[in-house]
Design a protein around this nucleic acid. Structure first.
Length: 880
RNA sequence: GGAGGCAUAGCUCAGCUGGUUAGAGUGCUUGCUUGACAUGCAAGAGGUCACUGGUUCGAUUCCAGUUGUCUCCACCA
């Protein structure tokens, strides 16, 4: 026995995952040491909200990032994964306000400072929760560099950007129509509005002409906004209404005189062709109103009640007012008809309330000049999306971009660094905490609003590295490399990081955007609170371990595609971990050596050369797929190698040498099996960090931890093409014998002689022991050619493989009819295949145009099938 | 209204630049206490790769259309 740790009999991840993680942290492996001789590889985490709890989306996102980071770290890069959290202004403020409401306190009771004190206390209490949950996943983030979007450095970056943009004229303040959430009592950006189909009505209303010459019929889905109408518009080319443009109407219920105007915005064939224009409460109407210099009449308070200007409805909620107005219209004879009508209603992405378009004084970022370089960067491939198709999304959004409303009527966030003079109306934008009016010398009042959360998130890739300071980190780690995120956040975040980075750092923020899909439930539904179908990653970790969770999320995952999560998947993952555990336990218990070194080629057995060659191929495949961001394919090639090749074959082939400690090959085999296992553990480590570390520590090893070991390199794993072929022939033959025996229901305990006729006699002779162990052979007789006399009696089962004809003398149990039927079926199949290839080869087009290698391949295949067919035919003839 | 994804074994999905006897996991059937693992081993059944055209010597793979399905964007009062 060697001197390393034992592995417990059962795989019990809960016993070691936390311990291992603590050790990694303690050793400081996650914290890079800047080394200018090494290339850097940097990922900034998409900062989770401090209000958040770990869900499957985070789990997937972090698994993918950790795989890339651990791979690059082992592959020799100086690697930084920079973690942190987002203050999530609207979500957090809503949560705190809700908690206060339960205590009977309002924001106003506490005042701004009191509220912020409470918010920070809340952050201290809950903000760390999501971080500790990420640690359970095994995330190898550099926690010493952890950041928060509201910390000092990020705030400095935010102020710097704001002032810069303002000075360049790219930030302005103006009265515009914005999306207003009457519940959250704040503006929100266009991207934060979610549209949903709702059943509604189309009310047709009579607007009488002032001169008594009849009326116009106007249709609306929102009759309550009628109070703020300042015109009715028709299409200028609409013959029906041509003569009415310029005439005055009397607004029903209100009595105000409003004009009929002509504007291209109106489509003649939709509805009645007449549109009521309410500039204060509809974005399109706002624009029409601006073109025609119409007054903007606001009829609602900020919590969506009718204002005092309309006494009949004052104080009524908008939906109550709607009913009342419809009733009054009906009673006044203004209502013509009501149609049912399904339409899209904008809702607040946070609270779900119906959005109220509203005119108010807000800060905006002028987007067009910023968008252009951001579009170019992706077009030039300075930034690449994986998969590429998401570039379309990005371009579409960027090319149709509208100015970004960045002010929020919230307290939890970055306060807008603008100051106003109440006396002269002067505005000063400065990073300073206070300002004095340059005109009248009076103290100025700071804007009470805060910035959109995404304003600070947009700076995340560089604000976290110290920008605007020229820090060492910024110089070394920036631009970052890969950004990993879901497709649902491309517009909110990815695109804003890109234009921000280009505008302020003159550089791209990252070179690659790896997009992943959503994790859905077993039925394919989105996981959501309202459905209650969410799966808690922490519960999964408790039950199956973090490695199994990571495996389940990474395997079969292809970029940009959604995936389902199910019990079956996680169980399969756990079973794989268990398999690896037990295989390792087997290797471990057979080791007497204290150091592993690959033996010289001359000492290696054929099966050793075979497994090394298979390992070589696996290393190539894993690395190539990791480099292509095909993490799912990389992992499944590892899975196949470990389970189907290493466990099912190599371990079985190695058992003889391993169990006989005195045998000549024992030490050689120990070294080979340990070498292959250790290299495999390294390959697997980025995907399943805990179990690989635990096993690594129990085997002879060179590095203190597997996570700082060198990632396997195919160039360093020997490869023996010919011997590998030999082994494949033997395996093929063993499989064929097993298949025949299983078909005949021969118990494994019943041994039988095996006669093998082959031109590869040397390799089959050497493999005699394997036939005994794995194919129930009592004796193996190999000859270089078929000789009927070799076989005892005529009644042998005959098996034809690509490299051998095999005879199993089992006359007593052969069902001749079945045997004939089987051989006939095989004969037919081979004949069909041969016919197919013959047809192909007789096609001049194929022979002339197909690549020579393909044609040669087909010829070789046909040769092989012909040989097999001859064997099968002979066997059949023998049976009569 | 615009854009995109998906459609392959009963189920969940791979199959990445066209040439494979089309794969995996799971489920199903059969046989195994083979001294690492029953969370296992061995074997088997199961697919006109949605449909219709086109390009090509050759299409599950590329192109177009059709159908079904999901998503994103825009929002017409």
């Amino acid at each position: 026995m060697n001197s390393y740790n034992e592995l417990p009999k059962t795989y019990s991840p809960g016993d070691f995952e936390d311990k291992i993680y603590a050790n990694w942290c303690e050793k400081g492996y996650f914290t890079p040491t800047i080394d200018h001789n090494k290339p850097s590889f940097t990922i900034v985490i998409p900062p989770p909200n401090i209000t958040g709890q770990l869900h499957m989306g985070h789990a997937l996102d972090n698994t993918l990032q950790d795989i890339l980071i651990r791979y690059k770290r082992m592959a020799g890069f100086c690697t930084l994964w920079l973690p942190g959290t987002d203050h999530a202004s609207i979500a957090t403020e809503a949560k705190i306000v809700e908690a206060m409401r339960k205590e009977g306190i309002t924001k106003e009771d506490l005042g701004r400072d009191g509220f912020l004190e409470r918010a920070w206390a809340w952050k201290e209490q809950y903000g760390g929760r999501i971080i500790s949950q990420l640690k359970k996943m095994g995330s190898s983030c550099d926690w010493s560099r952890e950041r928060f979007t509201l910390d000092e450095g990020c705030s400095e970056a935010v102020k710097t950007v704001f002032v810069k943009l303002y000075d360049k004229g790219l930030i302005y303040r103006g009265n515009r129509i914005i999306n207003w959430c009457p519940k959250c009592l704040t503006s929100i950006s266009d991207a934060e509005v979610e549209y949903e189909d709702q059943a509604g009505h189309f009310w047709h209303i009579r607007y009488p002409f002032k001169d008594g010459s009849g009326y116009l019929e106007v249709a609306t889905t929102r009759p309550e906004t009628l109070l703020g109408d300042t015109a009715v518009a028709v299409n200028p080319n609409d013959e029906r209404y041509k003569d009415m443009v310029g005439k005055m109407l009397i607004l029903p219920l209100v009595g105000r005189e409003i004009p009929v105007i002509a504007d291209d915005y109106v489509e003649a064939d939709f509805g009645t062709g007449c549109v009521k224009i309410t500039p204060a409460h509809d974005p399109n109407d706002f624009e029409v109103g601006a073109r025609h210099n119409l007054p903007v009449i606001n009829v609602m308070t900020d919590d969506a009640k009718i204002t005092e200007d309309y006494p009949a409805y004052a104080g009524m909620d908008r939906f109550v007012a709607r009913k009342q107005i419809v009733k009054d219209l009906e009673e006044g004879g203004f209502l013509i008809k009501v149609d049912n009508y399904a339409h899209n209603v904008g809702t607040c992405y946070r609270c779900g309330s119906t959005i109220e378009p509203r005119v108010s004084l807000q800060w905006f970022v002028k987007m067009e000049p910023l968008a252009k370089p951001a579009i170019d960067a992706v077009r030039n491939k300075d930034i690449r999306f994986v998969p590429e198709r998401f570039e379309k999304n990005y371009f579409h959004w960027m090319e149709n971009i509208r100015d970004w409303c960045i002010s929020r009527q919230l307290w939890w966030g970055h306060r807008i660094p603008a100051f106003y003079c109440d006396d002269c109306g002067e505005t000063v934008v400065t990073k300073d905490a206070s300002a004095v009016c340059p005109k009248c010398g009076k103290a100025m009042r700071q804007d009470p609003d805060t910035l959109d959360t995404w304003f600070s998130s947009a700076l995340w890739p560089f604000s976290t590295l110290g920008w605007p300071e020229e820090t060492e980190d910024l110089k070394y780690f920036y631009p970052t490399n890969t950004l990993v995120t879901g497709y649902d956040i491309i517009t909110f975040w990815v695109s804003r990081m890109i234009f921000s980075a280009l505008a302020y750092t003159d550089n791209v923020p990252f070179d690659t955007v790896l997009i992943h899909g959503l994790v859905r439930d077993a039925q394919g539904r989105k996981m959501s609170k309202s459905l209650g179908n969410g799966i808690d990653p922490l519960e999964i970790i408790d039950k199956y371990g973090a490695d199994a969770l990571r495996f389940a999320l990474a395997t079969g995952n292809s970029p940009g595609n959604d995936m389902r999560f199910s019990d079956e998947k996680i169980e399969a993952a756990r079973n794989f971990a268990n398999k690896l555990w037990n295989a390792s336990r087997f290797v471990r218990m057979n080791l007497t050596i204290d150091q592993v070194a690959l033996p010289a080629e001359s000492e290696l057995a054929t099966e050793d050369k075979w497994i090394l060659t298979e390992l070589h191929k696996t290393v190539e495949s894993v690395r190539a797929n990791l480099d292509k961001y095909e993490l799912g394919i990389a992992l499944s090639s590892l899975y196949d190698f470990i389970w189907d090749i290493f466990c099912d074959w190599y371990i079985e082939l190695a058992k003889t040498r391993l169990s006989d400690k005195e045998s000549a090959g024992n030490i050689v085999c120990q070294n080979v099996i340990a070498y292959v296992l250790i290299e495999t553990l390294k390959l697997l480590h980025p995907f399943m960090p805990f179990i690989t570390e635990e096993i690594y520590q129990s085997l002879p090893h060179d590095d203190e931890s597997i996570m700082i070991a060198e990632y396997p390199d195919a160039a360093k794993v020997p490869c023996f093409a010919e011997e590998s072929e030999d082994m494949a022939r033997v395996i093929d033959a063993i499989r064929a014998i097993r298949t025949r025996r299983a078909e005949m229901n021969v118990a494994p305990s019943r041994k039988a002689k095996v006669y093998i006729a082959t031109k590869y006699d040397a390799c089959f002779l050497a493999a005699a022991g394997f036939f005994a162990r794995l194919a129930s052979a009592s004796e193996v007789i190999v000859a270089d050619a078929f000789d009927a006399a070799l076989v005892s009696g005529d009644n042998a089962v005959q098996i034809i493989t690509d490299s051998a004809a095999i005879f199993l003398p089992m006359a007593d149990i052969i069902d001749f009819e079945k045997e004939k039927a089987r051989l006939a079926a095989e004969q037919k199949k081979l004949e069909d295949e041969i016919a197919r290839i013959e047809k192909k080869l007789s096609n001049q087009g194929f022979v002339q145009k197909a690549p020579a290698a393909v044609v040669e391949g087909e010829k070789a295949k046909m040769e092989k099938y012909r040989e097999n067919l001859a064997g099968v035919t002979a066997a059949l003839a023998k049976l009569g």
